[in-house]
Design a protein around this nucleic acid. Structure first.
Length: 244
DNA sequence: GTAGACTTTCCTGGTT
DNA sequence: CAACCAGGAAAGTCTA
């Protein structure tokens, strides 16, 4: 019922801490039997809190751990500009869930096969009509698990050490500089996020470099070192919701 | 249907 | 020599 990877970071950090201390466990258990009826103030959350629908959903019988993609909605940039009402967001979640069922369920019925796996590679190699790069492109699949942007993924890794596995760490938190400590691990974590077994640091770093142009990241001296740019948000210590 | 954003993948050349 | 950096190019998916 309580699937840690499905939770938005802001809730994840606070609730996992509480759960680790044994706090709120009873309350969460009770919540699971009375979906969406709990008192948000008990957790210090506002009724318009962006995370509420997700927690309500996650604590409802409708939720299954395989729906972890649902958390991606909270990671969209600019989502906090105007917070919709709880019911509206809940409707959004419901709609998103239906979309997930339509888009993801077919994949659930058959084993996941990566285009990087040998069989696919061999097939594409042997096919004369295969378009250029077909064997290595088009791996994004459905977007349900893609809504998390790379920079947001990196940010959340930095902000949640328990998921980090020491792959990246802050170099200077105030300046927003961070360093990739274990490039292989870093790429592996991103690959797991994207369900892409072919991810490596070369590709990951290329994706990061794309952010220079958009201002999400800034160039800094030093190998394996990056810096959040003006367009990146939610990484500062003084951003209470990790969103601005 | 289309454009733009985002990401992946490959490549070449340079640097550490 | 390996690992990393920089950036062009192309292509796929998703969203508006």
């Amino acid at each position: 019922m309580y699937h840690s990877s499905a939770l938005p970071f802001t809730l994840l950090s606070s609730f996992t801490a509480d759960l680790a201390n044994g706090a709120n466990q009873t309350a969460l258990t009770e919540l699971s039997t009375t979906p969406n009826s709990w008192d948000c103030s008990e957790y210090g959350l506002d009724v318009n809190d962006i995370d509420l629908p997700f927690l309500a959903y996650l604590t409802s019988p409708d939720y299954s751990s395989s729906d972890s993609d649902i958390c991606n909605l909270t990671d969209s940039t600019g989502v906090s500009e105007t917070l919709p009402q709880f019911t509206d967001l809940l409707a959004t979640v419901t709609t998103h869930r239906k979309n997930l069922e339509q888009q993801v369920l077919p994949d659930k019925t058959s084993p996941h096969t990566s285009v990087c796996e040998e069989t696919s590679i061999q097939e594409t190699k042997s096919s004369p009509v295969t378009p250029k790069h077909h064997s290595r492109r088009g791996t994004k699949g459905n977007r349900t698990n893609q809504s998390v942007h790379l920079w947001e993924f990196v940010r959340d890794l930095l902000l949640s050490p328990h998921k980090n596995q020491d792959a990246v760490r802050w170099e200077n938190r105030k300046e927003g500089t961070f360093r990739v400590v274990k490039s292989d691990m870093f790429a592996q974590l991103w690959g797991e996020q994207k369900k892409n077994k072919c991810m490596n640091y070369e590709k990951l770093s290329r994706a990061l470099r794309h952010y220079y142009k958009s201002g999400i990241l800034e160039r800094v001296d030093g190998r394996l070192t990056y810096k959040f740019g003006k367009k990146a948000h939610g990484w500062r210590e003084d951003s209470p919701k990790q969103l601005t």
